[in-house]
Every structure is written in structure tokens, then in C-alpha cells.
Design a protein around this nucleic acid. Structure first.
Lengths: 248, 248
DNA sequence: ATAATAGTGTCTTTAAGACATTATAGA
DNA sequence: TCTATAATGTCTTAAAGACACTATTAT
């Protein structure tokens, strides 16, 4: 029997020895992830086509059951399913929401615990290109599709949360290459919000937040115009929240 | 077998007929609630003393397992446990977080889905007074206690979220009587934040938000000074979020 | 009249919006 | 030189902070 964090008394030990999870009608626990990426000035989300019942053949969010043998925690479970189904390596997953009721899954009472992340397109395209049941969909299209279970609702919630983050935080540069330009970062926010941003306002916020490091180097991209400076995230910067949002 | 929202094909039906949840080692699902109230200018949180193993005798958050027969959804489950353990009737529960791993409960892999709410002290004191295993603790004291499972972590997260709400939103007047004064509402925010607020700033925000209705009446409280106007929440106001936070 | 509490006026400060201007590169 | 993109200057605007001041009531 496993040892808990709680001191286990003699009588508690005997209670645990007699405890059998299979005596109860336990609800199912699934973990689902909403992945976003930006490509050609457009937001995309990753969907997988279900190979098995229920909702076989429908597209839905990558995810699956918790495996109590393999998964150390919920985040680990989400990462494992992503890895298995899409070949995607661990972006920075953010907790999203838990939805649970008796109707959402025909197999019975079920809870979906969801995460979301914004990731660099390049970090996954190789694998995704090789299979037909994993695909990036333009967000607007994905929202119109009939997805498995209540995944449309989860997708909508994830987008809302991501947009709020773009208004009150500096959205994770995890979606960008290791070094990037401020214009790239601004474009990322603009695509998420679906509108343009005053670049002066954006740069003032970045300066104030002090979360970026100027590499001293400039982009060697081809094209006209001044070469933009390259920045990287300062180490150990989790998130910066501004006291004032950008206008909605 | 239950009918799902998803169209059930012939083959899907046979899949479902053969599906037995007990064939899998499913994690446990519990739902826990963090209730806050304000009394005498202090924040309190509601704890219950565990009557059973594990962690028997320790104080923890009110909550318990999902009952797939009784509970329609997670929110309903939280309300049911609150009702049963504390006699408290359904405040406005907000989703908080889901924590799940193999260590937090000695009975096995377990997920806690948590909610939090701010409620009026009067709405529950009657019942709580009659039993010894349900008690409001001053928040600071509760945070110092050794609580069951990882409930200290959940409590800390709930407080953080409540404080953020006090900075960027008008915190739910559900914690106040049906009609209340602006000073009462301001005090509520001040207690949550643990510091005083400029009343001019606070009142400007309320005016701008347009979420309160002036009843036209004034408080008949005894005491010196001008009698404050009484307000009530406009119907169907869920939440108002300001573009700019109060200073942290 | 005095004290206490509710509520307003108004000046300062902060940070975003708007948009013109300068800087640097390629063609 | 012309044009495109990067980056900055600076004026305006919105909303919070600070705090003095007025209003209303009980004693």
C-alpha cells in the first residue's frame, strides 16, 4: 500500500488496507489540452481525429484518461497524451478549467480537466505532417466544427482566457523562437486579439515589465528596413501581469 | 445504458455495452470548497473536522467524493457536500483549480476539483453554531494549521484569487445583505486585501461599472453621522472587470 | 457645538492611445 | 534617392491616488 503525506496511524493503516476503489462508482477522469499556434498571421488549434469509440471519427482535443500507473500528476498526464498522440514535446501548459457531469461522455459520469498552451509552430510540424489524424485547424474553423464531447466549449474558454492574457499580461514568448524581435511578439498579441495594437504602448509595457533581455544582436533577416534587435526571455520569468489592461 | 449527447451508432452502442468502468484503475475524484466570510473586520474560512479516515480528526475543506448517482455536475456535487456537512445553502461558487496526483490521498491517485465563494456570515452561522466539527477560522490561523491532504495549498490559491478579484473586479456583494451601503462594500474589499482603499477611487469605480442600484433608502442604523444610502446589485450582473486594477 | 460618518471636489500622477518623427537598412 | 520596417518623441486622454472639503446625523 502506498504511503501518503499524512502520518498513517495504526487504525488508519487498517482502514486503507480494506479500502478498495472498485467498490465505488467512480467518475471517469480525462485530461484534455488546447494547443494554439500562430502561422501566417492566423491562430491555429490542434485537433486529433478520434480512432476509437465514442465519437469515433470526430475531431476533438488531444487528451485521454489518467493512467494511475504512469501519470505522476495531471500535468504529466496531459503531456503524455500530447506526446503519444501528436508527438509534441511539453510546452508550458496552463490550467484551464474542470468540467464534469453525467452527460458529457456516453461511457458515464466524466470529468475533463483541461490545460492550454501557446506554442511555436516549428516545434511540432514535423511529426504532425507525417500523420493524417492530427492537424492544425484555423481557429475560426475549429470553432465551427462539431467536436467530440464538449470540446467546443473548452476551446471557447481557452480562447477567452488566452485573449484576456494578451490584454493584461505579456503572453508567453514560448510561442516564439528562443530569440525574437519585439515586432514578432507584438504580432503574436495582435493575432490573438484579432486587432492591431499601438506599438508604442506595447513597447512601453515591455520596458516596464523588465522581463526581456536585449541580446545586443540584430535579426539578419532579408528585406528592407532597419534590422530589429533580438530579445530573449529573462530566465525564471513565469508571467508578468500589468496593473492596467490594453483596451478590449 | 445511458444516452450521450453524441449520436450513438450501432457499433458505438455495442462498444458502450461492453464498456465497464470497473475494468480500469480510475483515479478518485473529490470536490472541495473554500468558503470565506467577513466578520468583525476579519476574513474567516470554513473548515470541517474529518470524522473518518484518512486524516481522521484533522481539519480540512468541506467536500467529498463525486456521487455519480446523485450529482448532476461538479458544482452540484460541491453544493451537496456543503449542504450535508455544514448546512450551508448554495452561495455563488467560483471554479478554482484542479489538483491531481498519486500522493495527495493515501487511498490512491486522486484529483481535487475546488471552488471558492465569499458568503454572508449570517447565512450559515445558525447551523454552524450547533455542531462542533464545523467552524469558521480566522484566515491567518487556518493558513498556519496543518490541514488534511493538500488543503493548505488550495486555501492559499483561493485567497490569491479572491484578492486578485478585489483588485480588478467588484467583488460579489453576495457576501453582503441584499441591500448594503458603499462603505460596507468597501470594507469588504479592504478586509480581503488587508489594506485600506481610497474611498474616492472605490466609489468612482462603482459609478462607472453601473452594477449597483440606489434603492433611494438610507440605512436606519443607530450611531452618529450621515446615514448612508442603501444599494442593491442590479439583476443579472455576474461580474464586472475593470480595465485598470487598484494598486497591489 | 462637537464628533463621527458619508459623500464630493479637485489636483496630481500614472499609464495607455494617437500619431508624427527619426533611424537604419535594401533596392 | 526612395521605400519599408524599426524605434522613439510627445501630446492627449482615462482613470487611480491623495487629500481637503462639505453634508448629515447623534450626543
Amino acid at each position: 500500500m502506498s504511503q501518503g503525506l499524512i502520518p498513517v496511524s495504526e487504525t488508519e493503516q487498517s482502514y486503507l488496507n480494506n479500502y478498495n476503489i472498485h467498490d465505488f462508482d467512480v467518475p471517469l477522469t480525462t485530461v484534455d489540452s488546447v494547443l494554439f499556434t500562430v502561422q501566417d498571421g492566423q491562430l491555429f488549434t490542434l485537433l486529433v481525429q478520434r480512432a476509437n469509440h465514442p465519437a469515433k471519427g470526430m475531431w476533438g482535443l488531444p487528451g485521454g484518461f489518467v493512467d494511475t500507473q504512469q501519470d505522476t500528476d495531471l500535468d504529466h498526464c496531459a503531456q503524455r497524451h500530447l506526446q503519444q498522440k501528436t508527438g509534441i514535446e511539453a510546452p508550458f501548459l496552463q490550467p484551464l478549467v474542470a468540467l464534469g457531469n453525467g452527460q458529457r461522455d456516453p461511457r458515464g459520469w466524466s470529468t475533463s480537466i483541461s490545460f492550454y498552451a501557446l506554442m511555436a509552430h516549428a516545434d511540432c510540424q514535423h511529426y504532425v505532417d507525417t500523420v493524417s489524424d492530427v492537424q492544425w485547424f484555423p481557429l475560426a474553423q475549429a470553432q465551427q466544427m462539431s467536436l467530440a464531447f464538449d470540446h467546443t466549449k473548452i476551446l471557447d474558454l481557452a480562447l477567452k482566457q488566452l485573449q484576456q492574457k494578451a490584454l493584461d499580461s505579456l503572453v508567453l514568448a514560448y510561442a516564439l523562437p528562443e530569440t525574437f524581435t519585439l515586432t514578432q511578439l507584438q504580432h503574436l498579441h495582435e493575432v490573438i486579439l484579432g486587432r492591431s495594437i499601438q506599438s508604442k504602448s506595447f513597447r512601453r509595457r515591455i520596458e516596464q515589465a523588465q522581463v526581456l533581455q536585449d541580446t545586443g544582436e540584430v535579426s539578419d533577416t532579408q528585406g528592407k528596413g532597419k534590422r530589429p534587435s533580438l530579445y530573449r526571455l529573462k530566465p525564471d520569468i513565469a508571467e508578468y501581469r500589468f496593473v492596467r489592461n490594453l483596451e478590449a
